[in-house]
Simulated assay, not measured.
Amino acid sequence: MESCIIQSPLGYTKIIGDENGIQTVTVLNSDEMFSDIIPETLEDCAYQLNEYFNGKRQSFDLKLNPQGTDFQKQVWNELLKIPFGKTASYLDLSKKLGDVKAIRAVANANGKNPIWIIIPCHRIIGSDGSLTGYAGGLHRKQWLLEHESPFKQQRLF
């Protein structure tokens, strides 16, 4: 298993993976040194994340290898189907998985998503349109949703 740390507008980002795919992408809440050398197996992931943050990429083309239960993997696969610039709710995901009563389980699986941004758990909002919990912090979730929005908010002051 190889790892590297890259800089992003939302903090240092750690990537872990190997020839079997990307296992984790996490934003760090500490100031760690970014990697001078990125392992070859992680270069494409780092490159695509940089393109995403620079507004030049809306989807990822990477081999993913997240570790989790079968149910978690089902939820993560549904997250991958939410298009760039769109959102869904836990209820929407529960319905797609065939069990509207599984909202809490879906929310729990969403919160355990190991591959930040690439598996877009940030695109999940409350049924009422509100921002809901986000492991990376609500300020990052808001930034990501604004970054992906087709309607860019201009700041007046």
Rank of each mutant, 00 (worst) to 15 (best):
residue 71 F to P: 06
residue 23 Q to H: 14
residue 54 N to W: 05
residue 17 G to E: 10
residue 115 I to P: 06
residue 124 I to R: 02
residue 70 D to Y: 10
residue 119 I to R: 06
residue 106 V to K: 01
residue 12 Y to R: 15
residue 61 D to S: 15
residue 40 E to M: 00
residue 125 I to P: 07
residue 19 E to P: 05
residue 83 P to E: 12
residue 71 F to G: 10
residue 120 P to T: 05
residue 101 K to R: 15
residue 117 I to H: 02
residue 13 T to M: 12
residue 75 V to P: 09
residue 75 V to W: 03
residue 36 D to W: 00
residue 100 V to G: 00
residue 113 N to E: 14
residue 78 E to V: 10
residue 56 K to Y: 01
residue 23 Q to V: 15
residue 62 L to C: 08
residue 33 M to Q: 04
residue 66 P to Y: 09
residue 28 L to G: 03
residue 58 Q to Y: 11
residue 125 I to W: 02
residue 62 L to Y: 06
residue 43 E to F: 03
residue 63 K to V: 14
residue 105 A to N: 15
residue 15 I to D: 06
residue 49 L to W: 01
residue 20 N to G: 01
residue 62 L to H: 04
residue 88 A to E: 14
residue 30 S to Y: 05
residue 45 C to P: 01
residue 110 N to G: 09
residue 63 K to Q: 13
residue 115 I to M: 12
residue 111 G to C: 02
residue 96 K to Q: 13
residue 16 I to Q: 09
residue 113 N to H: 11
residue 25 V to F: 02
residue 11 G to A: 15
residue 78 E to A: 11
residue 100 V to P: 10
residue 115 I to C: 07
residue 79 L to I: 13
residue 97 L to M: 11
residue 94 S to T: 04
residue 84 F to T: 05
residue 24 T to L: 03
residue 73 K to R: 13
residue 55 G to Q: 03
residue 20 N to M: 06
residue 59 S to F: 09
residue 80 L to R: 15
residue 17 G to A: 05
residue 57 R to A: 04
residue 31 D to Q: 07
residue 112 K to D: 15
residue 44 D to N: 07
residue 113 N to Y: 06
residue 85 G to Q: 06
residue 11 G to N: 12
residue 18 D to T: 06
residue 49 L to H: 05
residue 24 T to E: 12
residue 90 Y to C: 09
residue 129 G to L: 04
residue 42 L to M: 02
residue 109 A to H: 08
residue 48 Q to N: 06
residue 116 W to I: 11
residue 77 N to T: 10
residue 15 I to Y: 02
residue 18 D to W: 09
residue 33 M to G: 02
residue 118 I to R: 02
residue 50 N to V: 00
residue 127 S to V: 05
residue 96 K to I: 09
residue 14 K to N: 11
residue 104 R to T: 15
residue 70 D to P: 06
residue 33 M to F: 00
residue 82 I to M: 08
residue 92 D to N: 11
residue 126 G to E: 04
residue 18 D to Y: 11
residue 38 I to D: 05
residue 116 W to G: 06
residue 39 P to T: 01
residue 46 A to D: 02
residue 46 A to F: 00
residue 113 N to A: 08
residue 42 L to F: 00
residue 53 F to L: 03
residue 67 Q to F: 14
residue 65 N to C: 10
residue 11 G to M: 12
residue 105 A to W: 07
residue 117 I to D: 01
residue 50 N to W: 03
residue 67 Q to C: 14
residue 34 F to R: 02
